[in-house]
Amino acid sequence: MSEGNGPIVVCVSPDMAVRERVLRQLDGVGPVVSCADLAELRVMLFAEPPADEGRGVNPPLAPVSYGDLVIDPPGHVVTWRGRPLALTRTERMLLARLVTPPVRLWSYERLFASVWGGAYLGDTAILHSAMKRLRRKLRLLTGGPRVQTVRGVGYRLVPTSDDTGG
């Protein structure tokens, strides 16, 4: 099979051992693309992230404030009381969605489509894991907002008692 005519194999797994095993087993078969998740695959395949056209889940285009929290999606930075927070791209995207006016409940489906750009297939593990990491970082902020779970539905951002939620 020539490289120009053969299939391209795509391996998507968060487990590095699985990806390495697939690469070893398919060595010489043809091109193999290996990545940890769909977001990473999208970055590999497309220069620009896919648009959320028609889904009503577009990210904010300008900085958005939620009390002392400022999310600047174009600048890829989140600050709390003027100090930058060390958040991953996924955590920044989740937070940007949660503070997008009107601040309300985000279903698992809408968050998944907005942040990962794919169809929600009922597996919430990747979303719950990312949200757990974001919560851990937000807990370090004195008086900072908290992510609240609405079981079986989704998430929303809630202010603490000394945060106006503005």
Results as ranks from 00 to 15, higher is better:
160 T>S: 14
126 I>Y: 03
65 S>E: 15
144 G>W: 01
119 A>K: 11
15 D>R: 15
62 A>K: 15
47 A>S: 13
67 G>Y: 06
29 V>A: 14
58 N>W: 01
87 L>D: 07
159 P>K: 04
119 A>L: 10
98 L>A: 14
62 A>I: 15
61 L>Y: 00
120 Y>L: 09
116 W>A: 03
33 V>K: 13
142 T>D: 02
128 H>S: 09
18 V>D: 09
87 L>F: 01
100 T>A: 12
139 R>Q: 11
138 L>I: 09
84 P>C: 04
127 L>R: 03
68 D>I: 02
142 T>V: 13
107 S>A: 14
118 G>N: 10
53 E>R: 15
56 G>E: 08
90 T>Q: 15
82 G>H: 08
3 E>T: 01
94 L>M: 04
141 L>T: 06
160 T>I: 01
109 E>P: 06
23 L>E: 15
94 L>E: 06
108 Y>H: 07
39 A>Y: 02
14 P>H: 13
105 L>F: 05
44 M>A: 03
94 L>R: 03
141 L>E: 01
145 P>Y: 04
114 S>I: 04
150 V>H: 00
151 R>C: 01
67 G>Q: 07
144 G>F: 05
74 P>N: 10
108 Y>T: 01
85 L>C: 13
93 M>K: 07
112 F>M: 14
137 K>N: 04
38 L>I: 12
130 A>E: 10
133 R>V: 02
12 V>W: 08
95 L>R: 09
42 R>G: 13
142 T>Q: 10
56 G>R: 00
143 G>M: 13
119 A>S: 14
41 L>Y: 02
68 D>K: 07
109 E>Q: 11
105 L>D: 09
112 F>P: 10
